[in-house]
Simulated assay, not measured.
Amino acid sequence: MAGLSMQHPWAFAFGLLGNVISFATFLAPIPTFYRIYKSKSTEGFQSVPYVVALFSCMLWIFYALVKSNETFLITINAAGLVIESVYIIMYFVYAPKKGKLFTAKIMLLLNVLGFGLILLVTLLAFKGDKRVVMLGWICVGFSVSVFVAPLSIIKRVIQTKSVEYMPFSLSLSLTLSAVVWFLYGLLIKDKYVALPNILGFTFGVVQMALYMFYMNKTPVVTGGKDSGKLPSADQEHVLVNIAKLSPALPEKSSEVHPVTDRAVPRSCAAEAAAVAAMGPTNRDVVDVFVSRHSPAVHVV
Results as ranks from 00 to 15, higher is better:
Leu4His: 13
Ser5Ile: 05
His8Tyr: 09
Phe14Trp: 01
Gly18Lys: 00
Ser22Trp: 03
Thr25Gln: 02
Leu27Gln: 03
Leu27Asp: 01
Leu27Ser: 05
Pro29Cys: 00
Arg35His: 14
Lys38Ala: 09
Ser39Cys: 13
Phe45Cys: 08
Ser47Phe: 07
Val48Lys: 14
Phe55Gln: 01
Cys57Gln: 04
Met58Gly: 04
Ile61Arg: 12
Ile61Gly: 09
Ala64Met: 01
Leu65Cys: 13
Ser68Val: 12
Ser68Glu: 14
Asn69Val: 03
Phe72Pro: 02
Leu73Phe: 11
Ile74Tyr: 07
Asn77Arg: 03
Ala78Asn: 13
Val82Thr: 14
Ser85Thr: 13
Val86Gln: 09
Tyr87Val: 09
Ile88Thr: 02
Tyr91Leu: 00
Tyr91Phe: 05
Ala95Thr: 05
Leu101Pro: 13
Phe102Trp: 02
Thr103Gly: 00
Met107His: 04
Met107Pro: 01
Leu108Ala: 11
Leu108Tyr: 13
Leu109Phe: 03
Asn111Ala: 00
Leu113Met: 09
Leu113Glu: 15
Leu113Ile: 14
Gly114Trp: 04
Phe115Val: 06
Ile118Glu: 03
Leu119Ala: 06
Leu120Gln: 04
Val121Ser: 05
Thr122Ala: 05
Leu124Asp: 12
Phe126Arg: 10
Gly128Leu: 11
Asp129Ser: 14
Arg131Val: 04
Met134Val: 13
Cys139Tyr: 01
Gly141His: 04
Phe142Asn: 03
Val146Pro: 02
Phe147Gln: 01
Val148Asp: 07
Val148Glu: 10
Ser152Leu: 14
Ile153Val: 09
Ile154Leu: 13
Gln159Leu: 11
Gln159Phe: 05
Gln159His: 15
Thr160Arg: 03
Lys161Glu: 00
Lys161Ser: 01
Ser162Arg: 15
Ser162Asn: 10
Pro167Val: 06
Phe168Leu: 10
Leu170Ile: 07
Ser171Asp: 08
Thr175Arg: 00
Leu176Ser: 13
Ala178Ser: 07
Val179Ala: 03
Trp181Asp: 14
Trp181Asn: 09
Phe182Tyr: 10
Leu183Ser: 04
Leu187Trp: 00
Lys189Glu: 09
Tyr192Val: 09
Leu199Cys: 14
Gly200Glu: 02
Phe201Cys: 15
Leu210Arg: 08
Met215Glu: 07
Lys217Cys: 07
Lys217Tyr: 14
Val220Gln: 11
Asp226Ala: 06
Ser227Gln: 07
Gly228Met: 01
Gly228Asp: 02
Lys229Asn: 15
Lys229His: 04
Leu230Ile: 10
Gln235Val: 10
Glu236Leu: 05
Lys244Pro: 00
Leu249Asn: 02
Lys252Thr: 12
Lys252Ala: 09
Ser254Phe: 15
Glu255Asn: 06
Val256Pro: 01
His257Lys: 14
Val259Ala: 07
Pro265Ala: 13
Cys268Val: 15
Glu271Pro: 04
Glu271Lys: 09
Ala272Tyr: 03
Ala274His: 07
Ala276Ile: 05
Ala277Gly: 08
Gly279Ile: 10
Asp284Cys: 07
Asp287Tyr: 06
Arg292Asn: 12
His293Arg: 14
Ser294Pro: 03
Pro295Tyr: 02
His298Asn: 06
